[in-house]
């Protein structure tokens, strides 16, 4: 299990979990929050759950949709 995830991989994971089509550019742009992308709190919980189960993210990490995918990405790579 690795916490490393490329922007492409995170974008694909978000799209799969939430039904919102997200690009690698969008997950690296700090100005796009999950809210902006149309990912709500339930969707984000699904994303976090997936990262916790399969990508080694600690279970206590929590995040609200007013944060950006970029923050999530840096959280992941930061912990790697």
């Amino acid at each position: 299990m690795s916490a490393h995830l490329s922007p492409d991989e995170l974008a694909a994971l978000i799209s799969r979990c939430t039904g919102v089509t997200v690009t690698a550019e969008q997950v690296t742009d700090p100005h796009h929050t999950f809210d902006d992308l149309g990912v709500d709190s339930l969707g984000l919980m699904g994303v976090l759950g997936e990262l916790q189960r399969n990508h080694g993210m600690p279970r206590d990490v929590d995040m609200q949709p007013d944060r950006s995918p970029r923050e999530l990405l840096s959280l992941l790579t930061g912990r790697a």
Partner: peptide
């Protein structure tokens, strides 16, 4: 159905 609704 909206793709966001499909998954849920």
């Amino acid at each position: 159905v909206d793709p966001r609704v499909v998954v849920q």
